[in-house]
Design a protein around this nucleic acid. Structure first.
Lengths: 258, 258
DNA sequence: ACTCCGGAGATTTTCGAAAATCCATGTTGA
DNA sequence: TCAACATGGATTTTCGAAAATCTCCGGAGT
């Protein structure tokens, strides 16, 4: 009988323990892509993934198929999958759509939100604010933990919109923006008062001032896009793609694009 | 050497010939669900699907996984997949969101559309109008062909919005409404001038009157929802689900919900 | 120099069976 | 009577290998 840890320790799959291998590798792969552990545009070969995640091809195919529908990977029949590439045009498209979608979710939330919604916003904002003092790393905003709390904050803002589909949609678009956010955090010289932006947004929402809140979230969203453009607008698109490959999070084992 | 048609004729897969079995079964399964050949809420067992589509489990799993992300099937880890159920609450949610999304796509299209966009609208409207005289069936609006042309018409309206993501999103929501549309067509006693609605919408778009066009598409979308509610609002939710199971298209081999 | 072909290796896709899990049913014990 | 539990068939999930396809590279012919 082989010892329990005969093979690779499976790279600590399952953030919240998906009962299925497929689900676990899906979540893990999604995080790895969002944090650029697999570079934008990189080829995702089954053999490499199999070795990295210590699973067979079946769960991998299923995970990649789902991610393809989500837009995080691009698959072409019979010639494999790659990580969805990044580009300024793509960023523009996401940004425009995200303004509308997040704006809508926020508007509906402000209409329909109750005390619980307000409380959750305050809590998540507080939690997000504390990350700077709690986390020792040099760039806390690139940490897993900051991203988690940032995600939770924006989700809390939209949570009372009353539409599960809208929530899922905005979460997807939020995810798709993640890699661009990392670029700004890593390379932008301009200091950004994101805490202030988040606080102003929260205040407007709690004051039930939909117009102001929507204007603020638009500015918040466009701000990121503007900063990316400020850095990479002049340089070629290649630069952006390559830079994205360098902001990968720590436990990296991913090779760059082929 | 076995003859080309040694095994089952594979049920005429591949509307536009997806090169991959997985892709073909995905498209086929999607159509079958949209046309209620598998009843809303019905259990989708691999063995039954394997027999019906004459493919192995791997392509089926991939297709179901994708459809789950699209929202057309619901999967629960380790206890299989079912066709997404229908309900009045679900219809309300889709309707509200679809008004916003289709409205947005239309608005952007009207801003950005060129001659080619206009021409495509006129063409698709004409094509859609002709279906009544061309198709001999008793209820042409339940036919594959009408659905195809109706889909094409609404896609043409949105086509100039400039965002591939928005196009995909609106297509998904349009699909998710399909089963409710079929219910109205099959059971509503109120005669509906859908041709008139489509014409008015087209005219407003071609006149570049965004406000009017958006108002019209809202009315168009809500009209369907109102008719469903008129039929099933009083009766229990069960009735609606069961009725949906009866509007399935012809080459039916699908059993009802388990 | 350049295009077209052919073959070897790499890669994806699919199948069939093994393993793991679920579910309905009947049984035990209080 | 009833809840907890065991049991066997049904079902999903996963693997490993076979089949199909793609990609790259060198050679032939123009």
């Amino acid at each position: 009988m082989p010892p329990p840890s005969a093979r690779q320790p499976r790279a600590a799959l399952a953030p919240a323990a998906a009962p299925t291998l497929s689900g676990a590798v899906l979540e893990h792969l999604r995080r790895d892509i969002l944090e650029c552990r697999w570079s934008p545009g990189a080829r995702l070969r089954f053999e490499a993934l199999r070795a990295h995640y210590a699973v067979g091809i079946s769960p991998l195919r299923e995970a990649l198929s789902r991610l393809a529908v989500e837009g995080l990977v691009v698959g072409v029949d019979r010639r494999g999958f790659r990580v969805a590439p990044v580009s300024l045009d793509d960023l523009d498209e996401i940004t425009d759509l995200r303004c509308e979608i997040e704006g809508l979710a926020l508007r509906w939330s402000i209409e329909r939100g109750d005390d619980g919604w307000e409380a959750a916003i305050v809590a998540s904002f507080h939690h997000l604010s504390r990350v700077d003092s709690e986390l020792p790393g040099r760039v806390p905003r690139l940490s897993d933990e900051w991203e988690r709390r940032h995600t939770a904050y924006h989700q809390a803002m939209a949570a009372a919109c009353g539409s599960a589909r809208l929530m899922q949609l905005r979460a997807q678009l939020f995810d798709q923006t993640n890699r661009y956010r990392r670029l700004v955090i890593a390379y932008s010289k301009v200091p950004r008062d994101d805490r202030g932006e988040h606080r102003a947004l929260m205040d407007a929402a709690l004051a039930r001032d939909a117009e102001r809140a929507v204007a603020l979230i638009h500015r918040h969203i466009r701000h990121t896009a503007d900063l990316v453009r400020a850095i990479y607008g002049a340089k070629g698109a290649e630069t952006l793609a390559r830079a994205a490959g360098r902001v990968r999070a720590r436990p990296a084992a991913a090779r760059r694009a082929a």
